[in-house]
Each structure stands twice: as C-alpha cells, then as structure tokens.
C-alpha cells in the first residue's frame, strides 16, 4: 500500500495536522506543543519588530527553524488585499524566498470572517507573483472553486469562526467544496476539541489547521497529542469507509442462531 501522504504544491507531508504558533505562554510551550502534534507545517505571523526593545530577545525562527519545519507565514490581521500581499512579500524576503503561504483577508475584527472579495483579489496577485497560496476562506463552494481556478494550492474553509471552538457547523458545505475542487481541502478554524478534528477528517478533508484549540486548552501539549491522534483516527476511518447509517433496521453483531431455548 502506498504511504498515505498529504500532497501540497508537489511536496508530500506525513502529518495532516497543521498548527498555528500563536497564544502560547512562551516559546518553550510552543515548541513542546508543535513536537507533540507531529505537525510539519507550522503557521507564523509577520509583525513589526519592537524597535529598541531588548534586541537579544529570542526569535521564533530560532525555536522553530525553517530547516526542520515548513513555515507557513500568514496574513492574519490584514483587512485588504494590498496589506495581505505586502505582508507576504515581506515574509518571502524574511524566509529567503520561501513561497508557500497562508492567505487570509479578514472582514471585521468581531467575527474574523473572511472577506472573500479581497481574498480573491489578493490570491490573483500572489499567484501571478509566484506564490503558492493556501487560502483561508468561507465554506462557500462557489468561492472555493474560484480560488482553485485562480491557482491556489489548497482551499482552507472555516468550520466555524476563528478561535470560537464551535466545531464543524456545516459538514454539508465542506462536502460540497470537496466535490468541486481537486486541490487539498484543509479545515482551518473552528475546531475546539479532538472529536471536531476527527469529524473533519472522517468527512474526507485532507487536513486540519488549528491554533486556539491547542493553545487555549488547559494543557496545550496534551491537547496537541490528542489532536494528532484524532486527525490520524479520522483519516483512517475515512479510508476504511464507514458502515452505512440505518434507521430502524438493527443488525445484531452476534449470531441469531444457536440461542438457548
């Protein structure tokens, strides 16, 4: 049997769990959670450096070296296509020409819901500029297809709002997206606990990206391990093919003959 790997932009990954590095109490916890999760693709954010403040403070890239992980710079906090494109050009310079990126253009700070109009515009510019774009978007199957047609290398619909932990609210839309696009579909945002990740994978999603579900757990490193197992279990269940659901036609697991009378 061929190894079951996640193929993104021509590169294979053994882990289908992608994790963010925000909201941890310190770099040591970030590093421990990343290790426990088994994730190979790790998102990072790009921010202004703190001018004049402790020039020797540790840098995230020293803790999570690009030689060991595939770093996925994001555009979190960007509300326009222009800001997102600028941010990712800076990221590419920072990471020595690395072109795999996570595009997200947000609509408002209350919901962090994606602005798909700006997202489509940014995706076009970035693809034309040679970026390999993994794109955070709504769970709208029409937009998902348009993003694929633009040339995005992975479609990453929300399962519920960023940081909400509300789980998979519309599995039907995720299935519609998977029906329509050929590139990997990775649930990005909304996962709250291990069963949510398993459900996403059982639906046939190619991966799950999460941050808060791990970082905001009481014990983040333990939750990172749980998420690794959940993603693996959900993926295996998907590949195994679940039994059909049957209402009112119970089928006993034990023989119906040979019962004592």
């Amino acid at each position: 049997m061929n190894k079951d790997t996640l193929l993104i932009a021509g590169k294979s990954y053994n882990s289908r769990l992608l994790i963010g590095t925000g909201k941890y109490k310190d770099f040591a916890e970030t590093q421990a959670a990343v290790e426990a999760s088994g994730a190979e693709i790790i998102t990072i954010a790009i921010r202004r450096s703190n001018i004049g403040q402790n020039p020797n403070e540790p840098n995230l890239l020293d803790v999570l070296p690009p030689s060991k992980y595939t770093l996925l710079p994001n555009t979190a906090g960007c509300y326009s296509a222009d800001d997102a494109v600028r941010t990712l050009r800076l990221a590419r310079e920072l990471l020595n020409g690395h072109s795999l990126v996570k595009l997200e253009v947000l609509g408002d700070p209350q919901s962090l819901y994606p602005n798909v109009v700006e997202t489509l515009a940014a995706a076009k510019t970035l693809v034309a500029d040679g970026f390999q774009v993994m794109v955070y978007t709504s769970d709208d199957p029409i937009i998902a297809k348009q993003l694929e047609d633009i040339g995005c290398v992975a479609i990453m619909p929300l399962a519920s709002l960023i940081g909400s932990g509300m789980g998979i609210l519309n599995p039907w839309n995720l299935e519609l997206i998977m029906d329509r696009v050929q590139v990997p579909v990775i649930v990005d945002a909304g996962v709250g606990t291990a069963s949510d990740a398993a459900i996403a994978m059982e639906l046939g999603c190619h991966g799950v990206l999460m941050n808060t579900a791990i970082a905001a757990a009481q014990q983040p490193v333990l939750m990172a391990s749980a998420m690794k197992l959940a993603v693996d279990a959900g993926r295996m269940a998907f590949l195994a093919g679940r039994m059909p659901k049957k209402l009112y036609s119970a089928s006993p697991s034990s023989p119906t003959s040979g019962l004592i009378s």
């Binding site: 963010g20 590095t21 925000g22 909201k23 941890y24 970030t30 998102t43 990072i44 954010a45 790009i46 921010r47 202004r48 450096s49 001018i51 840098n59 995230l60 890239l61 770093l71 710079p73 994001n74 979190a76 800076l90 990221a91 920072l94 990471l95 960023i162 940081g163 990206l209 999460m210 941050n211 808060t212 970082a215």
Partner: peptide, 10 residues
C-alpha cells in the same frame, strides 16, 4: 521603513 519579524500566529 517597515522592519518585520516572525512571531507566533495561527
């Protein structure tokens, strides 16, 4: 000038 670094993010 804008000078940026990588920080934790999701």
């Amino acid at each position: 000038l804008e000078i940026v670094v990588a920080v934790g993010g999701g």
